[in-house]
Every structure is written in structure tokens, then in C-alpha cells.
Design a protein around this nucleic acid. Structure first.
Lengths: 139, 139
DNA sequence: AATTACGTTTACGTTAACGTCAACTTGGTG
DNA sequence: CACCAAGTTGACGTTAACGTAAACGTAATT
């Protein structure tokens, strides 16, 4: 059941953040490590939450927004009224994410243009051989 | 050639930001409105730049990062050395954007799960009839 | 006993991206 | 003219998300 425990520096290293950051997340109630004396003991649940937070941050969500999404479905809180409002929030989020994907595609298109301009302006056209896995110009 | 001029409040309204925000963007050198006495006169170029900035912000870029992308290709600055480093930066950006798309897809998947859980927990399963244009569960 | 590694708390500092407010100018309108 | 709407320039305030530094605890190693 992957019930390892993790030290703070272990997680900090795994995710490439400072220990200060993780302590900050605890202050904000984003994770709830147990204590052994003073030492924090992080569960795998905590670890996953951190992972989700960082994923949210990468797409520009605030910490508050990350938590909102992470904690959206708390089983037990299942009153019919609440479920419907939850579905509403899910829909809103979905719309925002789709907008973001559109924005990203627009930017990728711009980058393609720029790169193309660069390569035309270069003497020996040294176009990287186009890795088929990532080539956005392929058919 | 779409060479209208725009007032600050006109642009503020169009993009749903405050005039303060636009003045702030000028302070930071993101736009360069001409002046008629004191009044700022925004060109269509300025308008497009603001649009691009807001697009960048939606996906979590800082203003500095937005400018970096917007101003990436300045024709004239075309020294071979610089073109290559520019292509490098373009590649980095592309990688980040692809990572973001992945993150967004992961989140959309989570949202799908949550919604599914909600709907199963509801008495009359009132699943919205699934618009085929946006239904992420379709085959 | 001293050093090293890892951890802790407390507290103040920092940066970005604006918001807010006050005091002023300018261009029309009744 | 009196007045209002829209604009201007400072200048200070604010929030989020950490960074940084000081001063200390604990456990293992030398």
C-alpha cells in the first residue's frame, strides 16, 4: 500500500523545491505531516498532494486554487445540494483549462512562426532533423 | 490598415482590466502609447500587445516572460549567433508549453473522475446529455 | 568533546502585479 | 461660468509565495 514515510528534504529533493516551501505549504494547511518529536513525517498522501500542487502551479494556479481542485471531492460531504454546486465548479474549471489549452496552442503557433523566420534568415539552413515525436509541423 | 487609435478606458473595457493596469504596463515598457498633450493614444500595435500579454498571463506567465515571448523576434537584430540562441529559447518555451498541456490534460482527467463520482452519488442521475463538441468521454 | 548533517521555530525581507487614494488638468455641455 | 467625465501623476498599500538569517535541537560520526 505504498505507506512509506518521507523526510522533508527527501521530498524537497524529489520535487526540486526548498524545504522552506514545504514548510510553507504546511503552514497553509496544504499538507499535514505527522510529528515524531519535532521532525515532520510525510505520508504518501502528503507527497501526492505536493505533486498535485506543483502541477497546478505549473499552469499558473494560485495555491488556493490548487487546494480547491485537490479537495473538490471529499467523500462524505455528499449532500445533493453540494454535489450539484460541485459539478458546477468542475464545469467552470474545465472551461478555464480548455481556454488555457487554446492559449497554449496559439503560443505554440507563434513560436513556430518565429522559428521559421529564424531558420530562413540563417545561411546554412540547419533545421534540426525534426524528431517525429515532438515535431509540431508533421502531417 | 486598422490604424485606429484607442483611449485607455476603451482598451480597459475591451479586455476587462483596469486603467491602472494598462498604465502599469506602460511603466514597465510593455506598451508605448503616443501622447496628445497628457492623453495616451494607443495604436493597434499596443492593443495587440496587451492582448498577447493577457493571453500569456492566463497560462501563468509573468509579465517579464510575456514580453520575452512577444519580443522574441525583432527583425534587424539578426546576427547569426543571436538567431541560434533565439531558436534555443524557442525550443525551451515549446517544451514548457507542452508540459503545461500535459498538466492540463491530467487535471481534466481528474475533473472527469470527480464529476463521475458526483453523478453516481446523485439520486436521479442527471448527467448532462453530453455535448459531442466538448464531451471528453466520447469515443 | 567536537564536528557534521539534518531538522526546527521565529521573524523579518522581497518581488510581482496591481489597488487605492488624493490632488490636479482638460475638454466639452447645459 | 460652473460642472462633470475622463484623464493624469505621484505615492502609499496589499497580497501571494516564498527567501533568508539567526539561534537552536538531535543523532550519528570522528
Amino acid at each position: 500500500m505504498n505507506d512509506r514515510i518521507y523526510s522533508i528534504s527527501e521530498l524537497a529533493k524529489e520535487f526540486g523545491v526548498s524545504t522552506r516551501t514545504i514548510r510553507f505549504y504546511e503552514e497553509k494547511g496544504l499538507v499535514h505531516p505527522r510529528r515524531e518529536g519535532q521532525k515532520r513525517l510525510f505520508s504518501n498522501t502528503d507527497r501526492v498532494r505536493i505533486k498535485l500542487i506543483l502541477r497546478g502551479k505549473r499552469i499558473g494556479l494560485s495555491l488556493a486554487e490548487c487546494v480547491e481542485i485537490i479537495d473538490m471531492y471529499q467523500p462524505g460531504h455528499n449532500n445533493e445540494e453540494q454535489l450539484h454546486s460541485l459539478i458546477g465548479r468542475v464545469q467552470e474549471r474545465r472551461a478555464m483549462l480548455l481556454q488555457q489549452k487554446q492559449d497554449i496552442d496559439d503560443m505554440l503557433a507563434r513560436l513556430d512562426e518565429i522559428q521559421s523566420l529564424c531558420e530562413h534568415a540563417l545561411p546554412g539552413v540547419t533545421a534540426t532533423p525534426a524528431d517525429p515525436k515532438t515535431d509540431r509541423n508533421r502531417l
